[in-house]
Each structure stands twice: as C-alpha cells, then as structure tokens.
Design a protein around this nucleic acid. Structure first.
Lengths: 237, 237
DNA sequence: CGCCAAAATTGATCTGCGTCAATCGACTTT
DNA sequence: AAAGTCGATTGACGCAGATCAATTTTGGCG
C-alpha cells in the first residue's frame, strides 16, 4: 500500500492555474475576486477508498473536486447501498440545508479536493450574487440529473440501465478528456451495481452479454464501444 | 363534468393574504417587495388532469403552487412513466438551466398556481439575493429528496416502498394540514405505482396485504393508519 | 516467480414482482 | 334504477433479476 493517507498541502497553489478553473463554481469569479478566494480554499488529498465526508456528519466544509473520481452514496440501516452519483473534477459538493451532509462521499482512486470552511465561504458568497447564481445553476443541473436517474432506477431494464450508464458516463468524461470509444471505468462492478439498482452479478452478466453481441469490448479498467448504435438503441428504447 | 377549463383570473388578489405566503418562495420578501412582486404573478386555475407544462417545452414561466396537488413526471419514448415527485401548495416549479422544462406537470384535481413570466421574474431576482438564496434553498431541499427517492427506487422492496411513501406523504401533508391517522391520497394507484417504480397491481396487493395485517385501513380516497409502528418498521428496515 | 486476497465472471436455482386476464365497485348518465 | 365507464382489486402464471455457490482473473507483495 502507498504510504499516502489524507494529506493537506501546506498552501502554495493558485486558483488561476487550477485545472478546473474554467468550469467549477469559481468560473463565475473575476481575477480580483479569485485572488481573495484563493485564501479560502485549501487543497486536500485523499487516498483510494478514503471517505471525504459521511452522511449525517455535521457539514463543516464545501468541496470542489479537483482530481479523481468520487462515489456519492446513501446506506440503509441494514447495509444496502445506493450510489446517488459519481463526482468528477469540477463538481461542487457539500451543499445542504439541514447543516448535515445528506450522503457520504468516498474517493475512488486518489483524489484532490479544494476544501472550503463553511463559514468563511458563506461570508464570501454573501455579497457576490453571481457566485450564488452559479451555485444555484449547479444545484439545478444536479436536480435534473437526479430526476433522469430516477427514471432509470424506476423504469428501466438491466440492459437499458447498463447501456445508459455507459453512454452517460462517456458523455461526462467527454467534457473533461474529449471523446473516445474507450470508456474508462475507475469504479468497481459493485459500485456500478449500486448506482444502477442491480446486483454485481447482473452487471457482470450484462457486460458479458453486450460483449457477446459485439456491442462492446470488456477491457481492463474500462469498456470499449464497438457498436455504439446498438448501445444507443438500448438507451432510446 | 365540470365546465371549468384553464382559467386565468382577471387579477385582483393580494400576496399578503396568500395561503402559501409563509412558506413559499415569497416568504423571503419584505412587505415593500411583496407589493411589487404582486404585479408579476397571475393566478391561473387548472382542472383535473390538465397539463400545466410539458417536458421539453420551452420554459416561459415559473409556477408557485397555491392550491391542489400536481404530479411531476417523465416519460420514456415507449410510454413508460416515472413520477419524479408530487407538488403541494408552496412548491416552486419551473427552475431549469437548459431553457426547457425537464419534466411534465399535471393537475391532480383542481389546481391554482401563481404564474410568473420568466423574464420579469428573472429581473426581479437580479438585485434581490435573498430571494435567490431562498430559491437555492428550495432547490437543495428538492435535491435531497430526490436522492432519498433514488434509494427507495434502487434498493427497496415493494412493501418498503409503499410504507415509505405512505409515511412520507403523511409527513408532507402534516406541515400543511396537521397530523392525523388519515392519509388522504388524491392521486390514483397508477400514479403511486409510477412514483414507486412498481405496477398498479403490486401497489394494490401491497395495500391489501398491509390491511390484512392490521397495519392500515383502506378507505375511499385515502388510507387510515391503524398500526403506525408496523408501517414504520418497514420504512426503517 | 509464486502466494494470497480481492474482484470479476459464470452457472444453477429461486423468487418478487410483472404480465395477463377477469371481476368488482364506485360514479355518471340517461 | 339500469347501463356504461373507469379505477381498483384479485387470481393465475411467467420471467427478469436476485441469490447462492463455485471458479477464474487480477493485483499486491515477499
């Protein structure tokens, strides 16, 4: 195992050359504001599998994901898990109204976040409505995604779920790394199952089936799209 | 059939004695603002089953539900329907980022909304960050509910779904009309099924089963809770 | 390289819920 | 009150996906 545990970088970074500068919350800030903003956040690293925050924890911070992928999930008392989303660089986490997080967040692979203490961040927003508007925009976009996912969970078959997930994930990665027929899947089969409301066995079998039909190719760490039309047909259905 | 179709009231109402004044978006406005706000909205009535707006429609208005219940839903191309929520008085509808609604909304029973044209409403918000903050708060609350619902759809059994729905719906009505062991269900069994990701038959059978076990009593237009502990046990499970 | 643990795949079987179909009951209309 | 309509309930049966149980593959490490 790598020796790395959660580490907090001793400062010394600049928002202006941040990788997510263009599309994260902070995209709404002008250069002057950015310089002030810089002092509010602090880069924190998390190793594979570490939990960034847990459901029901008092929410003391907001997080701007800079690098890596996170799984966002809720647990039922008996251990059943529903993954409510995967976070990618640029995603903003920690909004809530109850003062507590309403889901947990783990690192899938190594992760870097820009962490903001709640109070100073709140004060910074106070007189910057454009930042608030940006946050609102992100919340509304997430809400729309959440509703799409409800349709998937409630009304789609296993085949459709897996196909929809593959193309949706590809689409999200597209805006970050550009398009490709290779869809990297950093999360485990169990994660995919818990995202789609299926079991790990069904996910595995569905991938195998799609591969047998020539629609995809299962490669290490991801999926190759061989016949996108066929996968898209499942999504449209 | 009642002769009523969509009717637009010829003005003449006051925000100050609006039924949802205390808890809707407008709760963040002071009396002076309210008087200005009054001119932006316009009461519109919808009869049972009428569609207030449709998914993919250009969103030209926001809506503040004043009276009645609405179903909010998405359709798959082949007609499968997922109800993503029910709206009650005080709920604010129409937020979006794409410029289009991302779900459809029908009246369940007679409905009155306070309708705001997008542009003037947007201008009104512009220099009133507290209103924006209120809208953000509502969006975040909805997001949290959406995530809870994902858990239900993806990971719960039919019994748990129905029990969770009953108590959740009761809880929502509680803040409007106070608590009672009678839970009115203005929506059809089909609506409930489409909300829970089940079929109408399974919903019906589950109600019957709960009634046989003495947990509930099926009455016309609703459900009576006879053994709440038993229903709560299903939710906790 | 070989050993071990964890993840993924595959197979066999089971079951919860869907599907199909009939009946019932509550309203509306005449 | 009879007839027709629509929603809800009930029953019989089937199947998609869960469960249980082995393997197989992969990755880390001495």
């Amino acid at each position: 195992m790598r020796a790395s545990v959660t580490t907090i970088e001793p400062n010394g970074h600049f928002c202006s050359d941040c990788a997510v500068r263009g599309f994260a919350v902070c995209s709404s800030l002008d250069p002057a504001e950015l310089r002030e903003f810089e002092h509010l956040g602090c880069r924190v690293h998390f190793a594979t599998g570490e939990t960034v925050f847990s459901e029901e924890d008092i929410a003391t911070s907001f997080y701007n994901l800079l690098e890596g992928v996170m799984r966002l999930y809720k647990l039922l008392p008996d251990g059943r898990r529903q993954i409510v989303g995967f976070a990618l660089p640029g995603d903003f986490l920690g909004m809530n109204i109850s003062g507590r997080h309403n889901f947990s967040a783990d690192a899938i692979g190594a992760v870097t976040v820009c962490q903001f203490a709640k109070a100073p961040f709140g004060r910074f927003i106070e007189d910057r409505p454009h930042l608030l508007r940006r946050i609102n925009e992100l919340a509304i976009r997430e809400l729309s995604q959440a509703r799409d996912h409800m349709v998937l969970l409630g009304r789609r078959s296993a085949d459709e779920k897996v196909a929809t997930f593959l193309l949706g994930w590809r689409e999200r990665l597209f805006s970050l790394k550009g398009s490709s027929n290779m869809v990297p899947l950093p999360m485990s089969r169990q994660d995919i199952a818990d995202y789609l409301g299926l079991t790990i066995e069904t996910v595995s079998r569905t991938f195998t089936k799609l591969e047998r039909h020539g629609a995809i190719e299962i490669v290490h760490g991801g999926i190759g799209l061989r016949d996108r039309a066929r996968v898209e047909a499942l999504v449209a259905a």
